[in-house]
């Protein structure tokens, strides 16, 4: 899923301080799972903001809502009737959701309430980690199901580098060496022949380097 973390409240206060009526819009998708932008986080943020603006004697109404998904127009449509009641929206969705909201409600200032970080997994409650960089050309078949692009700090395709030590990356003892993991897993799977062959330079056209990406599938279009 897409992982995000809440923006510091000071930053959000700064975004909305010049308005009088603001809607905090959560998203029930990924950001709910990583506890950054779901209903609960909307409530807490809205309450804290109300406390702040009340204390400052500033006229400010803060309302709360959450949409099933903000990356989907059908759900964004649910705001159509009430969007004009607000001066601005703080969206707690990922960057995609914030932008889609802005695209849909062009005249309304939309501010991000979270920092979108990566595509990852919940390793344990409160610990989320990156697993995928969406390069658009999955190579996991030959790397033991572990992605060197997201797990190696140098995104090497022929690692590990000389900085690998006791399974850890040279950048930090808290970071696993992606290639160490790959090697161990290939060994367990009896697939070390994948490791033996040099990997050629990758075609990054399908990654963000090729420009903004789009998938168009005629088979599922209406």
């Amino acid at each position: 899923m897409i992982m995000a973390r809440p923006k510091p409240i000071e930053e959000i206060i700064d975004e909305i301080k010049d308005f009088n009526k603001v809607l905090i819009a959560g998203c029930d998708g990924c950001v709910t799972v990583c506890e950054a932008g779901g209903v609960k986080e909307v409530q807490v943020l809205a309450s804290a903001l109300r406390l702040y603006f009340t204390k400052e004697n500033k006229r400010m109404e803060i309302d709360e809502t959450s949409l099933t998904r903000q990356c989907d127009k059908d759900y964004l449509h649910e705001l159509l009737d009430k969007i004009d009641d607000y001066d601005a929206i703080v969206s707690l969705a990922c960057g995609a959701g914030v932008q889609f909201m802005a695209e849909m409600y062009r005249k309304k200032p939309i501010f991000p309430g979270v920092d979108t970080c990566f595509i990852g997994v919940t390793e344990e409650r409160g610990v989320w980690a990156e697993r995928c960089q969406a390069c658009g050309q999955c190579i996991l078949a030959s790397t033991g199901g572990i992605c060197p692009i997201s797990r190696c700090s140098k995104r090497m395709l022929n690692g590990p580098c000389g900085g690998s030590e006791k399974g850890k990356c040279e950048i930090s003892p808290d970071t696993d060496c992606g290639w160490h993991l790959i090697y161990e897993r290939l060994k367990e799977l009896g697939q070390l022949d994948f490791f033996a062959e040099p990997t050629d330079p990758k075609d990054w056209v399908s990654s963000r380097d090729g420009g903004p990406r789009k998938i168009v599938r005629e088979d599922v279009r209406l």
């Binding site: 000071e10 804290a48 702040y52």
Partner: peptide, 8 residues
Amino acid sequence: EVLEKIGM
């Protein structure tokens, strides 16, 4: 922590 950040 929230209170501190909002000046309470």
